[in-house]
């Protein structure tokens, strides 16, 4: 059911919701960008509607609301371990269609990949999603090419339009909060075309893996890992055991985001690494997004949000690489 409100009414309903839920949404962090006097849009906990950035695409994806960058798995003393408590409150996560499609990929890896991840599951079960529509396409995204421009997996759709606000509440409990509004048919804004279009390679063979393109782009890569860290579908983590300095018999084990482009990712005991060459790392990343994942789960991993292209300091365009690879495979 859809409802219409004034923006003020919506702001006050939202503030009440934010008391019951932990709300995670894209926020403009003033001056926190890479360079001086440059902002960054990333996720944070918010308590009022006006904190949320509805216009600009977030530089970093929503995934940190489900998968903290650093997550303590357990604390250990000499003879026992303690698992930290999960989220105390239910959480609302604001995101766009591409990102909501990415949630399906995260679920695939953490819940439907042979076992259920305890930590992901307990947060995921407490999470509801609020869809932010896209009135216009962003320039770098290619969600239409990836079929991720639409979704019906949201619990709530929320749109601000001038002095008005519109919601569509699919979740019954959430709908309670909006019943005071004027009923009106509301349907999400989805884009049907992007300026960036990607054609995935059709005939990937073992030969494709040897493409010179991986060398070309690999040579330009500086192994910073930004493409992985902003990606809503990258799920890799590493483990870190921390021994507290005051008493090294106690400590904690954390899982921490990892990047297949950063040194150390494939390092094993003895110092051997499986993909020390940048071209191999580039191939691994690209093929995982457009081939390997699909082979295993039947749909592609990449949701075409375009964040990796936006963030790369070396102007490596993943979307262009894939298009060029597609031409090579014809």
């Amino acid at each position: 059911m859809g409802y219409k409100f004034s923006k003020e009414e919506m702001a006050s309903i939202f503030s009440k919701l934010a008391e019951d839920y932990d709300v995670f949404a894209p926020v403009v962090k003033k001056g926190d960008g890479t360079f001086s006097d440059v902002d960054v849009v990333r996720y944070d906990k918010v308590s009022s509607l006006d904190e949320i950035e509805f216009e600009k695409k977030s530089d970093y994806s929503f995934k940190e609301a489900l998968l903290p960058i650093n997550e303590t798995i357990f604390y250990f003393t000499e003879d026992e371990t303690t698992v930290p408590k999960g989220p105390a409150k239910e959480r609302l996560v604001f995101l766009r269609a591409c990102d909501l499609n990415a949630v399906k990929r995260l679920d695939q890896i953490y819940l439907k990949n042979g076992f259920e991840d305890f930590y992901y599951k307990r947060t995921r079960e407490m999470t509801k999603f609020v869809l932010m529509g896209c009135k216009e396409s962003c320039t770098s995204g290619f969600c239409v090419s990836m079929g991720t421009n639409t979704t019906d997996e949201y619990d709530l759709y929320l749109k601000l339009d001038g002095d008005n606000a519109y919601v569509e509440a699919k979740d019954e409990k959430l709908a309670e909060a909006f019943k005071s509004g004027n009923e009106e048919a509301v349907s999400p804004d989805f884009v049907s075309e992007n300026p960036t279009k990607v054609t995935l390679p059709k005939n990937i063979t073992p030969e494709t893996m040897k493409s010179e393109l991986f060398k070309e782009y690999g040579n330009r890569c500086i192994n910073c890992g930004r493409c992985n860290f902003v990606c809503p579908t990258c799920t890799c983590f590493t483990m870190q055991d921390i021994f507290y300095k005051d008493n090294e018999k106690n400590g904690e084990r954390r899982r921490v985001w990892a990047s297949c482009q950063v040194d150390g990712y494939t390092e094993i005991a003895g110092g051997h690494g499986f993909r020390s060459d940048n071209a191999d790392r580039m191939r691994f990343k690209v093929m995982h997004k457009i081939h390997d994942f699909e082979k295993r789960f039947g749909y592609h991993m990449c949701v075409g949000c375009g964040r990796c292209d936006d963030v790369c300091p070396e102007y490596i365009s993943y979307s262009n690489l894939v298009n060029r690879l597609g031409k090579e495979c014809e």
Partner: peptide, 28 residues
Amino acid sequence: NYKIVRDTEKCIGCGVCVTKCPTRAWTR
């Protein structure tokens, strides 16, 4: 312990760490 320690005596405040950080752990 897998986290950064900044030698405050040595640091000249150039901001290179901020420009290199891929996750916004370092900001200005």
